[in-house]
Design a protein around this nucleic acid. Sequence first.
DNA 1: ATGCCGTATGATATACGA
Length: 268
Amino acid sequence: MTVRIATWNVNSVRLRLDAIAELVKQWNIDVLCFQETKVINDAFPIKAFRRLGFDHCALNGQKSYNGVAILSRRAFERRAEPAWCGKRDCRHLWVTLDVGIDVHNFYVPAGGDVPDPDLNDKFAHKLQFLEEMTDWFGKRRRRNPKSVLVGDLNIAPHENDVWSHKQLLKVVSHTPVEVEALTRLYRTRDWVDAVRHFVPHSEKLYSWWSYRSPRWQDSDRGRRLDHIWTTPALKPHLSRLEVLRDVRGWERPSDHVPIVVELTLPKG
DNA sequence: ATGCCGTATGATATACGA
């Protein structure tokens, strides 16, 4: 039995419905995890997803900014997410699938422009968010050994996760202080970077290209901000992974592309 | 180091993304 999970920062779910339908059609997705839905729950286009076969949905949206959603063909139980950093800014959803796997969907704060928490509240928020995640997962090490963490973590941790390691060392998303914070989170459950499990660290790999470069394919100045991590118990079940770079070239694209992971699980 | 753009909103400018 296989389960295909996709993560995608859609940058407005309502504008991206056609692209989402195409993604689902091409890749036969079972579980969709979106970030930056930018819509309140009451206005979420649930019917469009029912037509695509997604009968189960969990929503955590607000007006204009942020917002996450999980749409699934499989049944799940929604779990209560904490109020990260004392805010209700719609950056996390957490469900347990009928196959017994916990799925966490995160939208980590982008962090603004200046990589100094004393000068920039947004950067301070980003670091605090990561620290709270680290504490939270650290305290729940033994909760469910079969867990998946996906989302736009807004950090490209490795040298070949950005187009120029040297030129981005002081740019928010690739600064050492952020990378260290993400590394501490990574160690809480000995997470497995499912993307790098399939694509070696020697190979440049991105999931985001700025809207500001019209010739994004030629300059190829991307960053790998979107991630899929699994607990070690799921590592033997990782059967396929795709970073769907082509989607960046679709009509009216998001600046992020979807990442799809397939897990092949034993019967029963 | 910066600017190129795209999205949403009590909008015709502003906040935000990264």
